[in-house]
Amino acid sequence: MTLKAQSTHETENIVGKIDKILIDEALIESTANDSSPLISSAQPLQPLSYRHAFMLVLKRDLTIAMRHKDDMINPLLFFVIVVTLFPLGIGPEAQTLSRIAPGIIWVAALLATLLSLDRLFKSDHHDGSLEQMLLSPHPIFILVLAKIFAHWLITGLPLILIAPLLAVLLHLDENSYTALLLTLLLGTPVLSLLGAVGVALTVGIKKGGVLLSLLVLPLYIPVLIFATSAIDTAALGLPYSGQLAIIAALFFGSLTLAPFAVGAALKVSTN
């Protein structure tokens, strides 16, 4: 019984790998196709091909994630468990909990993101597809952005979806539910973007996990501060658009700058 289950799991794995290779080949083919008409005719295909490459990488990453669902579910479970631990450690009084709920949810979200970051580049680095990506004629910026976006869809979005449930468990003030969701919506992409820089730097190192947290967590501090303060302000019934604007600024800043850093770091890591 267990043997059978294992074997089916393995075939699934193999199918997944073949699929991955196929998609990789499609990526390479598409890049080959893009370059030839550029030489022969003056038809400007460049903007279309950027989107094409972005969609290909995104689709590929999402397919792989769908084949390994535990990669998706485990960080989410970790998030839920960490949040559950706090009431057990601090005490079940509703007042205390609602006071510290924003901090708990956000710190747990930081840690869950950190835990899931590892899979962003690691498996691609192991099987060599990362190097192929770096060798492709498409700008690394686009490919990296697609990978980060896929990572956010896989780990950030489920976090946002489950957060209201945890907020109920922690007696979060009713006024601050929208603030919680908005800050998570704007803040978790920042976490993925900044985290990608750390992963890209440590992907070539054997024991990169602990190092990663040391590199990335200090950079997460601004997001944590503004997000929790927005939620706190919302609980008081005051406008919190200022904090949201700053998180949005952090989002757009990291959206434009982080992929460059990730590209440079990946070039160093893959050497």
Binding site: P218, L219, I221, S229, A265
Partner: peptide, 25 residues
């Protein structure tokens, strides 16, 4: 050296942001 250099540059962009956010906090 190269990896640490990238991290240093990321850090130097972040230092003013961190400083400002901590002041705010």
């Amino acid at each position: 050296g190269k990896a640490a250099g990238i991290l240093t540059l990321v850090g130097v962009i972040n230092i003013p942001i961190i400083k400002y956010s901590v002041d705010w906090w």
